[in-house]
Structures are given as structure tokens and as C-alpha cells.
Design a binder for these strands. Structure first.
Length: 644
RNA sequence: GGACCGGUAGCUCAGUUGGAUAGAGCAUCAGCCUUCUAAGCUGAGGGUCAUUGGUUCGAAUCCAAUCCGGUUCACCA
């Protein structure tokens, strides 16, 4: 009996592996490890629960698959009568049937454990940095994927025993902020969130767009001049660059090298944009900011304040939270000392013009600038500084960065530089890289106005939830505030699930029609399943029936066992999601579990089960399933309603 | 051009430490509400797993080449 309990604490797959290793050792006097054979779930068309594949053992044992299977099957069943009941062998696959007692013990022990599958604290500390917004415009769909991913990954780490510090780095300085500020000064007439009723981040974003429009208008005539060959208004350096670009444009075969043509034109356009009066204003403002000119600082603080208030509202709505927020205006000077030290250690080198670089060509990368010739730091410089600060501040064992895959190269460089500098935490930097969110019509482009705004999409989802709920008319007795909460729960459930169900590293397509569909592989489907189960449990517990300590009745029916097999895999799913930093593992798991329950639900009655023993069993099954659904969805940041 | 990532059903995606006849959801078609919530369930059709070659008992999965798509290689952030 001791041995049986021992098995209960590890997954069935692990138990199986250990049993097989032991049996093989006793049968053939040879040592094997888990890697020498494969354990799979048995395909539904065969009898059994788990399957051991014989082929990989054939070579070292010099026996036929069937011979090994028979010997192993007999030995396993003979020596673990509490775990295995019987076996069959088909074409080299040993299918083992796991005893009903194993499944029922699992249920008995865990059906009421809301922490089932979670691991105790392991003493390791992890920082997860996510949601790094700029303060010049509101959050969009891409940010949502980032935020949901970062938040969920943090929760998954916690469930696996890590202490997690959620952090954000706010990009609150730089030319883009100045753009919004310039336009606001020109056009706003003192408009504020308070006197316009516009959410702060949107208000600032509106002026950013305003700036870009002006910039575009001012760029046109300059482009015309360039195309006419008039370069008299440019600095010697720009004129020189333009000359070369124009030459390139004339020499390349436009029909064959469309891409290169496009790029050359973009380069020309970029120079034209940089030479507009309005751009000069923005640059001047950036200089003034760096000098700390009071009126610029005041405006900057004021407008950033509006943006933070706006972000806060959005974070509250979508349930994002942070333990610490870093601001670039505080961190952008951080890496400077490190650059000096690196220079002294000859890890960096200085070019003639005074700029400082690192040579990464030996590692298959390029030379990378770490400090400009004017002594100011670049993006990567402050990243190095912040990486060190995070470590010194919290002594973290791992530092996770949730950043889009367009920065794969940047993050690779960052980690490499940290390693070369001998920073203690360099090895523990992990870039959780995720793919872009595209629309069915292609990429989101702010210049073309195709960006899906985060607040808008939340509003739309809430409206959709309301519409569906009203059509179905199942919660007519809800109060106004209960309804509001339900719409929120469903809207966010749909959205989070939609964005988290896909493997993070893959580019994903956001289809508006699909995203508001509440059927099939969606959050509301899982939420609905939970509500259904709760409805059963309410009925059962409100009746005269009470939980007894009576025996669960076996044998298990196919669907009962299927559910238990699924439930048994929850801890493994949590572990996989954690080691892969991949919430989609949980989304897929939870969906399959819900699906299995729904099949079970239509086939068998819980409240009106055939016998008291069956009722006992099924009530526990329902409880455990609802607990796991709730627990899994929580890790995705999704709450499950009691009724819907 | 170099580096990295991807290509699985009409669409969106699972499945890759190599395992049995490649799976879901949506969409299409056909059924199921007198029984615990039909936001559900059952069934049908739908595939050259980009292509070609290799590795072996066995390849969507590993290797090589090719084709297609994306990202990146800034004194931008």
C-alpha cells in the first residue's frame, strides 16, 4: 500500500517509466533510463490507457518486440497489481490498462483541492518584464498580447513555485514624446483630459497623430525639391547622402529590384522628414529636455501624467499589475559607468570620432555601438545598466523579458554583451519573444490608421458579451451590477483566451469576426462549461443529498475514466507551460478538459446517477473538473462565472 | 547578401525528446432540447504536413538542398 501512495504523488507517466525501468532491470539484468523507451497515451481505437513502444528496446535486447512486450507486460502486471490490471500487444506496442483504483484514489484525494497541480515554493526568484509602452500613444492589440503573455507567464511561474516580480519599463522620454508635446503646444489651446473628457493616453496620442500629419505635409515639398535635383537646402552631409541615394535609384533596375527601390526611396524620405521645420522643433525640444529646461520639463510631466492615468484605467480593466515600474527617464544614464569599465577592460573600443563600440563579429554578429560620439548613451546602454540594476536590487535567479520578436537580434546582443562584461546574471536573461499580431488584411500600421486600439476592442467585446447574454436570456434575475460584472468577465475571457491560445512565438492573425465568436475553442466555451458544472453542484447540494464517505462505484465508464485521465495530466501541463514559458499549453489543456466534460455531461447524469455510488463518483468528478478549469483559467488571467 | 523565425484541411491553429489510420475550432452539410444551462452534443465531407533527397523497423517531427513568407543587420527606440 505504501508503494501505491508513492505512485499517487508522481504522474502516471513517471510511475510507468519507473516501473518499466525496474522490470527491465529484473528481467534482463540491464540498466535502462526513461530515454530508452517511449510512453504514450493509448490511441482510443485500442484497449488500454498507456502504451509503451517496444521498438527502441529491440536492438539492445536482441529480442523481438512481441517477446519483450509479453515479458514486460507480464512482469509489470504481476509486480504492480494495484496499478496495472492487464495488457495487450499489437504490432510492437504494449498497451497497459491502469487499475480503476488508481483513478479513483486520484479523485478521492484531489477532488476538493483547489491547489491541485501547483507546486510548493522552490526558493527561486524571477523577474518578468512586460508591457513596455511608449508614453506618446495609447495601448493597442500588440500591447495586449504582450501584457496577457507577461501576466500569465508570471502566474504560471508562481504556480510552479517561483517567486515572481512583475516589472514594467516605461519609455517616457525621447523624440516621440516631444512630437506629441510640440503638436499639443501648437494646436491644443490648453486642452486637457479634464476639460475635454478624453482619456489621457488617447488625448496625447491624438496630438502625436497631428504631428505626424504635419510632418507628412512638410515632407512633400522637400521631396519634390530632391526629385528635381535641388539639394541646396541640405547640410553637406545630407546632400552627399542624397546624391548617392539618387544615383542608386537611377542605376538599379526598378522592375527587378522592387525591394531595393523601395528601401532607397524610404531612405530619401527619411532624410527629407528629418529636414522639416517641425522636426527641427521636436529635436530642439529633446535637447531642451535633456538640459532640463523648466517649461519643457513641466509640460513633459503634465502630459506623461495624463498618459499614466489613462494607462492605469486600461490596466485596471484588463487586470494587469506590476510590482515595480522603471522609467527610462531614470534609467537612460545607467549604463554609462559600465561602458567606461568595459572600455578599460578592452571589451569595448573607441573609434577615432570618440564613439564606443563592441566587436561581436567573432560571435557571428556585427559591431555594435554602445555610446555615441557625443558621449550620450543609446538604447542598449541603458538596457545593460537596467539588467544589472534588476539583479542588484532583487538578486533574481532569472530575468525574463517579454518583448516582440523584431527585437530578437537586440536581445541576443544584450545578453552577449552582458556575458562579455562578466555580469553575474548574464546567463539568466531570457527573452520571451512573441510574434506580431496581424490583421486579416495584413499588418497593423499606425501610419495607415489600421491599429486596433486596446480600449476600443475591450468595449466591443463587452458589447458583444451583452448582446449574446441578452439573446440567450439565462440570467434575467441578475442585478445591474451582476450583469455588468458578467459582461466584463466574458469579454475579457474571450479576448485573453483568443490571444493566449496561440503559441507565443508565432505570428498570429487577429480576425475580428472570429474573436467575438463565443463558440468552440474560446474562453466563453470554457467559462460556460464551468457555469454548467456549478449549476449541477448547486442542484446536488441544495437537495437532500449530502457528500458521504461512501465507496465510489467501479467499474469506471469510458467517459468517466477519460475525464480522470485528463485531470491527471493537469500538473504535467502546468509544468510544461512553465518550462516553455507558454500559456497556450494551459489554454489547450483547459479547452480539451471542458470538451471532455461536455461529452460526459450529455451522456451521463450526475444528479440522477444510476446508483448512490455513481452519484458520489460523478459529483466528485464534477467538483474536480470545475476546480481545475477555474485554476487553469486563473493562470490565463480569466475568471470563470458561477452562472452565465 | 548575413543571421534568426515560419510554411500542417477553405480559414485560424494543435501536434516536433521520431511511433499505430495526422487532430481541434470556425465555415459547409445532416441529426439531437419532456431529462443537471443547446454559449452544448453526435455524425459527414474536407490533407502531396511547401518541394526534393537522405538517415531507419518507422519521419509532419531529425539532416541537407531548394522554393515561398516574415523579422533583423541604425550614432532610432
Amino acid at each position: 500500500m505504501f508503494r501505491f501512495h508513492y505512485f499517487c504523488r508522481m504522474s502516471i507517466v513517471n510511475s510507468l517509466q519507473q516501473s518499466v525501468i525496474k522490470s527491465l532491470a529484473e528481467l534482463y539484468n540491464q540498466p535502462f533510463t526513461e530515454k530508452d523507451f517511449q510512453v504514450n497515451q493509448t490511441k482510443p481505437e485500442f484497449e488500454g490507457d498507456y502504451t509503451i513502444v517496444m521498438f527502441s528496446l529491440v536492438k539492445s535486447l536482441k529480442l523481438s518486440p512481441d517477446a519483450i512486450g509479453t515479458a514486460l507486460g507480464n512482469h509489470l502486471v504481476g509486480n504492480n497489481p494495484l496499478l496495472f490490471t492487464h495488457y495487450n500487444i499489437i504490432k510492437g506496442f504494449l498497451n497497459l490498462s491502469v487499475a480503476d483504483d488508481f483513478w479513483m484514489q486520484l479523485l478521492q484525494r484531489n477532488h476538493n483541492d483547489v491547489c491541485y497541480g501547483k507546486k510548493p515554493m522552490n526558493g527561486k526568484k524571477v523577474m518578468v518584464e512586460y508591457a513596455s509602452p511608449n508614453t506618446n500613444k495609447p495601448l493597442h492589440l500588440g500591447h495586449l498580447r504582450n501584457i496577457f503573455l507577461g501576466w500569465s507567464t508570471s502566474e504560471i511561474l508562481k504556480a510552479n513555485g517561483y517567486e515572481v516580480i512583475k516589472s514594467a519599463i516605461v519609455n517616457d522620454r525621447g523624440i516621440h514624446i516631444c512630437k506629441s508635446m510640440i503638436a499639443w503646444l501648437k494646436y491644443a489651446n490648453g486642452a486637457t483630459p479634464a476639460n475635454t473628457g478624453i482619456k489621457g493616453d488617447h488625448l496625447v496620442g491624438d496630438y502625436y497623430v497631428r504631428f505626424e500629419n504635419d510632418l507628412k505635409a512638410q515632407t512633400e515639398p522637400i521631396l519634390e525639391k530632391i526629385n528635381a535635383g535641388d539639394l541646396s537646402h541640405f547640410s553637406a552631409m545630407d546632400a552627399d547622402k542624397l546624391l548617392k541615394l539618387l544615383q542608386t535609384l537611377n542605376t538599379i533596375d526598378k522592375s527587378k529590384e522592387a525591394e531595393k527601390t523601395e528601401k532607397t526611396k524610404d531612405d530619401i524620405k527619411e532624410i527629407a522628414r528629418a529636414n522639416t521645420p517641425i522636426m527641427a522643433e521636436a529635436k530642439q525640444m529633446l535637447l531642451d529636455w535633456e538640459e532640463g529646461k523648466p517649461e519643457v520639463m513641466d509640460l513633459w510631466r503634465k502630459m506623461n501624467g495624463w498618459v499614466y492615468d489613462g494607462f492605469e484605467v486600461t490596466y485596471q480593466r484588463i487586470g494587469a499589475d506590476f510590482d515595480i515600474t522603471y522609467y527610462e527617464s531614470n534609467t537612460y544614464l545607467l549604463g554609462k559607468n559600465i561602458v567606461q569599465q568595459g572600455l578599460e577592460k578592452n571589451i569595448f573600443f573607441k573609434k577615432e570620432d570618440g564613439s564606443i563600440w563592441i566587436d561581436l563579429t567573432a560571435d557571428g554578429l556585427d559591431e555594435k555601438l554602445v555610446q555615441r560620439k557625443d558621449g550620450t548613451s543609446v538604447y542598449i546602454t541603458q538596457d545593460i545598466g537596467l539588467a544589472l540594476q534588476k539583479y542588484e536590487q532583487y538578486k533574481i535567479d532569472q530575468s525574463i523579458y517579454v518583448i516582440g520578436n523584431e527585437q530578437n537580434y537586440h536581445m541576443k546582443v544584450l545578453q552577449l554583451i552582458c556575458k562579455k562584461l562578466g555580469m553575474p546574471n548574464a546567463e539568466n536573461i531570457y527573452h520571451l519573444s512573441y510574434g506580431m499580431v496581424e490583421l486579416t488584411t495584413g499588418k497593423m500600421k499606425s501610419r495607415e490608421g489600421t491599429v486596433v486600439d486596446a480600449d476600443d476592442i475591450v468595449d466591443e467585446m463587452i458589447a458583444t458579451s451583452q448582446q449574446h447574454t441578452e439573446e440567450l436570456g439565462k440570467v434575467k434575475d441578475f442585478t445591474e451590477s451582476e450583469l455588468k460584472e458578467l459582461y466584463n468577465t466574458l469579454a475579457l475571457g474571450a479576448m485573453k483566451f483568443y490571444l493566449l491560445r496561440v503559441d507565443p512565438k508565432k505570428t498570429m492573425v487577429f480576425n475580428p469576426q472570429e474573436s467575438i465568436d463565443f463558440h468552440g475553442f474560446t474562453g466563453p466555451f470554457v467559462q460556460y462549461t464551468h457555469a454548467r458544472i456549478k449549476s449541477i453542484l448547486r442542484k446536488v447540494h441544495n437537495g437532500e443529498w449530502k457528500m458521504e464517505n461512501g465507496q465510489l462505484e467501479s467499474p469506471l465508464l469510458t467517459l468517466e475514466k477519460q475525464l480522470l485521465v485528463h485531470l491527471e495530466q493537469y500538473p504535467a501541463a502546468l509544468g510544461q507551460a512553465c518550462s516553455e514559458h507558454n500559456p497556450s499549453v494551459i489554454a489547450n489543456y483547459v479547452f480539451q478538459l471542458a470538451q471532455t466534460f461536455n461529452t460526459f455531461y450529455t451522456e451521463h447524469s450526475v444528479a440522477n446517477a444510476e446508483t448512490p455510488g455513481k452519484k458520489q463518483l460523478r459529483v466528485q468528478l464534477a467538483m474536480m473538473t470545475s476546480n481545475v478549469l477555474k485554476s487553469g483559467m486563473e493562470l490565463l488571467g480569466i475568471t470563470v462565472p458561477e452562472r452565465m
